[in-house]
Amino acid sequence: MTGMSVTTTRLLVLGAVGLFEPVNGYQIRRELMSWQVDAWASINPGSIYHALRSLAGQGLLIDHTIGDGGRDVVVYELAEAGRVVLEDAIVAGVSEVNIYDRHAFQAAFGLLPMLGDRRAEAALRARRDAVRRAIGDVMPPEDGRAYAPPHALRSLALWKQFAEVELHWLDGVLADIASGALSFEDTGRWAPPADDPGYQIVEDRERYRAALHRAPN
């Protein structure tokens, strides 16, 4: 299972379940849509429900049907195999660099609290090193540039500048971690305000935990 390929959709669905478990499918859909995944990752609501069912069928999620307010609700939790796959995928999404496509990184960065500070920082440092190397490989060598049309070279220069901006950004993120201004621990300082519509997910989680005979968080 640890070598399983995880698409951006599967990574986000596994991660959202891990962050809010036990959680129902509608809540996962609402949460991911609030992250605007339809805009930057081209993920539609239907694919979220499909991913939940598929991941449960593969043993990466555990689904429970419980009674809730007079109706049956299916809620999801990470299976142990799913937790291993998820954490490996987060590390890979952060540390493996494709400067032409950052969808996997964008998804993985949002899930770094699943790793905690030490592993998150290590993955970010690995990414910074990889971005540095990639910057040097974007443009063809001087003796090969005559074979590329000028507009293509300008396009490559734009990709190089994107990577340079990311490198500067990574330096800032790592500096914030070092100073204590940024933490990826699950017990971090931030919590959603009580009037946030998404806060309902927290209340529902405790009700679902009670229905599953678990101790509240």
Rank of each mutant, 00 (worst) to 15 (best):
Q58P: 00
Q58V: 00
Q58A: 07
Q58K: 13
Q58I: 00
G59R: 06
G59N: 09
L60P: 01
L61K: 04
D63N: 10
T65V: 14
T65Y: 02
I66M: 06
D68R: 08
G70Y: 05
R71P: 01
R71V: 11
V75G: 07
Y76R: 05
L78Y: 05
L78G: 02
E80D: 15
E80A: 14
E80F: 09
A81W: 01
R83S: 13
V84G: 00
V84C: 02
V84F: 00
V85G: 02
V85M: 08
E87C: 11
E87A: 12
D88V: 03
D88R: 15
A89C: 11
I90F: 09
V91A: 12
A92R: 15
A92K: 14
A92Y: 03
G93T: 05
V94D: 03
V97Y: 06
N98G: 02
Y100I: 02
D101A: 11
R102I: 06
H103M: 13
H103S: 15
A104M: 14
A104W: 01
F105W: 14
Q106L: 10
Q106M: 12
Q106D: 11
F109S: 12
G110C: 10
L111V: 03
L112P: 03
P113N: 09
G116I: 07
R118A: 15
R119I: 09
A120N: 06
A120D: 05
E121P: 00
A122F: 01
A122Y: 02
A123K: 04
A123H: 04
L124W: 10
R125A: 03
R125S: 03
A126N: 14
R128K: 12
R128Y: 02
V131I: 15
R132Y: 09
R132W: 03
R133Q: 14
I135G: 04
I135S: 06
D137A: 13
D137Q: 15
V138Q: 04
V138E: 04
V138G: 02
M139V: 02
M139I: 08
P140W: 13
A146P: 00
Y147I: 03
P150V: 12
P150N: 08
P150F: 05
R154S: 14
S155N: 09
S155K: 11
S155E: 12
L156G: 03
L156N: 04
A157D: 14
L158C: 01
L158I: 10
Q161D: 12
F162I: 05
A163T: 05
A163R: 07
A163V: 03
A163G: 14
E164G: 08
V165A: 13
V165N: 13
E166D: 14
W169C: 01
L170M: 10
G172K: 13
L174M: 10
I177D: 05
I177E: 07
A178V: 00
S179I: 01
G180R: 04
